[in-house]
Every structure is written in C-alpha cells, then in structure tokens.
Design a protein around this nucleic acid. Structure first.
Lengths: 147, 147
DNA sequence: TATTGTTATACTCTATAACTATA
DNA sequence: TATAGTTATAGAGTATAACAATA
C-alpha cells in the first residue's frame, strides 16, 4: 500500500512548504540582486521562463492574481528589470519581457539557487541525485495536475 | 558535479513552492474541516506534532512570529479545536494543546493529505516510493539546516 | 458582449513595538 | 534584567470591484 512512504512524504512536504523554510530559501536566492525581493522573484523568474507574455497569462501560470501581476510588473519596471511593449497581435494586450539587467538578475538568482541545491546534492551519490531529481519532477507534475 | 540534477531539482522546487501549488494543496487538506483554513493548518498541525507547547516554542518550530502564533491559537481556541492551560513549571508560560475536536480535525486533515499523496505514489513501484520518501526527507532536512 | 490592463478599495497576514506578569 | 503572553499598530500581500480601451 505504501502508507508508510506517504507518511514520510507528508511530513517532509509539510516542512518544505512551511513559510519559514520557503522564505529562507527565497531570501537566499535573491541575495545580492538589486531590485528583487522574495515576492518579486517568482514574477521575474516566470517572465524569464515564458516571456514575452501578457500579465494575464503570466498570472495564471505563476498562480497569482491578474492585478497583483500588473503591480509587481510595475515595480520590476521601475527597477529597470522588466519592460512593457504593446502586443502587435492584440492592441488590448501588453507584453512583459526582461531587460538586459533583468536577464542578468535572473542568471544571478538561478546561480544562487543552483549553488544551494548543489550543496545538498553533492552529499549524495550522483546516481541517487539523478534519481531524486527525476522523481521530484514527476511528483510535482502529478501534484499540479491533481486539480 | 551533478549540475544537471540541480537544474531539474531547481525547476521542480520552484513549481512546488509557488503560491498556487501550495494553496491548492492546503485547500485540499482542510476541505471539509470546520474552523480550519490554509493559514491555521500549519498551526494546528504543529501542536498535534509537538504539543503541549508554548506559543513561543511553537512559533519557532513552524517559522512564524510569536504574535501571529498567539493570535492563531486564539482563533483555533474559539473554534473549539485548541485549548490553553498554564504551565506548572513556569507561571509565565501557557501551554497549547488540542481538544478532542482538534484531534479529530487533525486526523481528518492528515487523511486528506495522505490520500492525495498516495494518489501519486500509487503510480510508482513501492520501492521507488520508499526511496523517494527517504530522499525527500533527507533533502528537506539539509535544506532546513542550510541556514 | 467579452477581455486586457489598470486603479481603487478592503481584507488578511506578518512584523515591530509596547505593556503586564513572572523568572 | 530577561522572557512569556498578549494587544495595538503599521506595512505588505492579495482579492474583488470597477473603469477605459479594444476584440
């Protein structure tokens, strides 16, 4: 049945999702990156992943409200990390994209996160790390589609 | 080096910690449990795990502010799920513990979460699930102690 | 009529500061 | 003097509602 595995996953997941753990990790990721805090990070990272993108679509992807997305975009624009341009295909829409500074910030944040993760994975056998990465990826995908 | 594993873990972790994913999971967990929402769940669950416990110690464990812990405890007390009693060993302290209703609520929430996780793990080989559970547990522990 | 971007508004969460009681 | 609990207050995040422009 695997109930015992479920109990362990449940406990670990609970600790992982806890505010303190999350915030600490985010703080570490945005450390030394000007104009980005733990709140803005998912927004900037989302545009890096799927941009150029409209605020409405971005909001849906990163699980945020449309109005919050537009406000955070404004903050990132003020910080010179993001820019807006009209969508040639739809005059109602505005496309969000990264500026060169924004791309540099994302690269730095990803480096911070990769470093933190490698600090952990390096304690394991490479094969074990590989297996964990694949399993976690699959687990999260299934979790997202539980809907 | 395992950089490729790190990249996969990074991507999966990003999606997992995203607000939308987290809230959806929490909503699922508290579904049908009277008096508990996604905010109160970690508090109630924390007391179930380590109670009877003082508000200050609870706050430290679940990564919350002391003042928030005491306010949430009040809400849970009003809902009849938690109770306060003086600490015989220290007259300054108040111990938080679950009422019978609180214990029933926690059992129900854990059932919800275990069911959701088993929906995922059941797709895997038992040995693979077991290995993932152990790896995730270890990963989270190391993440917590990166400090 | 529906949708995009945006702003205004209200509500919730969280942290800081301050107060009281006890160690 | 330090610590536990609590309350008051302010700041930040988020959702709902409403508006103008375009589909």
């Amino acid at each position: 049945m695997g109930s015992s595995s479920a109990a362990r996953v449940q406990s670990a997941l609970g600790r992982l999702l806890q505010r303190g753990t999350r915030m600490h990790l985010y703080d570490r990721v945005v450390d030394g990156v000007e104009g980005v805090d733990a709140t803005l990070y998912p927004v900037l990272s989302g545009v890096a992943r799927i941009g150029p993108v409209s605020a409405t679509e971005l909001a849906a992807v990163i699980g945020l409200d449309r109005t919050a997305a537009t406000r955070y975009a404004t903050r990132l624009e003020s910080a010179g990390l993001m820019s807006r341009r009209p969508d040639a295909a739809d005059a109602r829409a505005t496309l969000l994209e990264l500026t060169p500074h924004g791309r540099k910030a994302v690269a730095r944040m990803r480096g911070n996160l990769t470093r933190a993760i490698n600090d952990i994975l390096d304690e394991w056998q490479p094969a074990q790390a590989e297996q964990f990465a694949a399993a976690l990826d699959d687990f999260v995908s299934r979790l997202e589609s539980l809907a």
